[in-house]
Design a protein around this nucleic acid. Structure first.
Length: 469
RNA sequence: GCCCCUCUAGCUCAACUGGCAGAGCAACGGACUCUUAAUCCGCAGGUUCUGGGUUCGAAUCCCAGGGGGGGUACCA
């Protein structure tokens, strides 16, 4: 027990409880707060300071009369951590304050405060020294608070719908579940190569085989690819699997979830992102991939279009075509070049070529296509989902096609996972699956332009040693 | 990977066409009992990202390297 009253309240509670007391009065109540000194106004025998904690700010009113070790109090630096207690009051100018009766230095800030008016502008410093950024940049604190709320709201929402949260391995002996280049590592005792997961998908579907009919994981995944405003090498994906459902049910689920989060976090379904409107009011349009492609590209193409024609359409659009690509891959490339950049959303792009979707169920009405959708919001792919492929024989054929791609040099193709095939032989019921890029969802809801704004410690090159001091 | 932009005091930024590297805030010393980015006086603070080059002279121009940002490719 220190000399101070240990009963602390947050600055937010302080404003809530005492915010409406009369100007220029004291109410005979004592409060204790703790936090960081953000501003200081020494005025001779009376000093004002602004204290910030995780919930907000409050002014400290420190006259010589009541403040112990007054000179030391005046000597506090911006950034110092203090605990203060004293009477709650409101100044003549109407600012709710705590009249310092006791105070204690908890930690001193030995590095000097960034510009108290401009804050931190250099993105490099903001990302490398996130501890400074969070201390100084209100917007950063809000964004990460929103991220935390979004995660917990999502968990609660799924829980209410009987989804069970699980954790599956990060180390995968066989990389799979997404078309992406993995990070490779090595286990010494087992003397084996391991891959950091690119997706939890195959493990989660094993759990559905095991009878966990509604399962999800909020998974950190790792992809050895480029970095951009939308890509970080490690990122967070929500994957869920829902037995007896199909991709249409998943569409409704996704719509409901995103609307729920928007309403809870932003109070509306009519968002604006980067100054452009995004209306999430359901239902979002469902449009077939091939229809979008033909409309946007003006090309009369389909799966049965001669390969030569598809190739020359690609070449016309400066796409580097590889010989082994079938019509599905060529159509996908054309879509990504001509159509995807035009989309803003929200929109469900439905029914992708089977060739590029090795884990998805073939479409019930359209052979050669699969029951799969991508949800486009604010011009970005936010989610990818399908009716899962449940037939082990068909899955084996798809894996073998992928293995051929891998052998032909496609570093993003999937490897054949024998145990996964065995699991399918044990029996996977019809299942709908969904993956949501959670970082991108935060970006959308917080209206920030870069994925680095929603990841506390984004991947950066190592700092050059000279500049660390 | 590739292209463009950028890097000056702890922070935010100046410095004309190549001509003594500056201001505000922070820090430090002082004045001030109702301030709100308090104000006022004083003082100190630099490998101008690094290394070469051109020049009488480089923060400025050129070359190489490094960090960061944006775009682009692969991808969520």
């Amino acid at each position: 027990m220190s000399v101070l009253d240990r009963f602390e309240i947050t600055t937010a509670e302080c404003h809530q409880r005492y915010g409406d007391i009369e100007v220029g009065t004291e109410i005979g109540q004592t409060a204790a707060v703790a936090g960081r000194i953000m501003l200081r106004r020494v005025q001779g025998k009376l000093t004002f300071a602004t204290l910030q904690d995780a919930t907000g700010r409050i002014q400290l009113f420190a006259p010589t009369k009541t403040t112990p070790d007054y000179d030391d109090f005046c000597g506090l630096s911006l950034g110092d951590w203090v605990r203060v207690s004293g009477e709650v009051m409101k100044t003549r100018k109407g600012e709710l304050s705590i009249k310092v009766a006791q105070w204690e230095l908890l930690a001193s800030a030995r590095r000097s405060f960034p510009d108290k008016w401009h804050g931190l502008a250099d993105p490099d410093t903001r990302f490398r020294q996130r501890y400074v950024d969070l201390w100084v940049t209100e917007q950063a604190r809000q964004t990460f608070q929103m991220r935390s709320k979004m995660m917990s709201l999502t968990r609660r929402w799924l829980e209410e719908r009987r989804f069970i949260e699980v954790e599956t391995p990060v180390f995968h002996p066989v990389p799979g579940g997404a078309l992406a280049r993995p990070f490779v590592t090595h286990h010494n005792a087992l003397d084996m190569t391991l891959f950091l997961r690119v997706a939890p998908e195959l493990y989660l579907k094993r759990l559905v085989v095991g009878g966990i009919e509604r399962v999800y994981e909020i998974a950190r995944v790792f992809r050895n690819e480029g970095i951009s405003t939308r890509h970080n090498p490690e990122f967070t994906i929500l994957e869920l699997y829902w037995a007896y459902a199909d991709y249409r049910a998943i569409m409704e689920l996704l719509e409901e979830l995103v609307v729920h989060l928007a309403v809870e976090l932003r109070g509306t379904t009519k968002l604006s992102y980067g100054g452009r409107e995004l209306d999430l009011t359901p239902p979002w349009p469902r449009v077939r991939f091939i229809d979008l492609l033909t409309t946007h590209s003006g090309l009369d193409v389909n799966l049965n279009t001669p390969l030569e024609d598809l190739r020359s359409h690609c070449v016309d659009r400066e796409i580097l075509v590889e010989d082994r690509w079938g019509p599905g891959k060529l159509l996908l490339e054309l879509y990504e070049k001509t159509t995807e950049p035009e989309l803003w959303g929200p929109v469900f792009v439905c029914d992708y070529p089977k060739e590029v979707s090795p884990l998805a169920q073939e479409h019930r009405d359209h052979p050669g296509w699969v029951e799969r959708f991508e949800a486009i919001l604010a011009g970005r792919e936010l989610a990818n989902a399908f009716s899962e492929l449940t037939d082990p024989d068909e899955q084996r054929i798809r894996f073998e096609d992928q293995a051929a791609e891998l052998a032909a040099g496609d570093a993003e193709a999937m490897a054949l996972d024998h145990d996964y095939l065995r699991a399918l032989e044990v029996g996977l019921p019809p299942t709908g699956g969904l993956g949501i890029g959670m970082d991108r969802l935060v970006m959308l809801l917080a209206d920030v332009p870069s994925i680095r704004d929603v990841i506390l410690f984004p991947t950066l090159r190592p700092e050059c040693p000279q500049s660390s001091e």
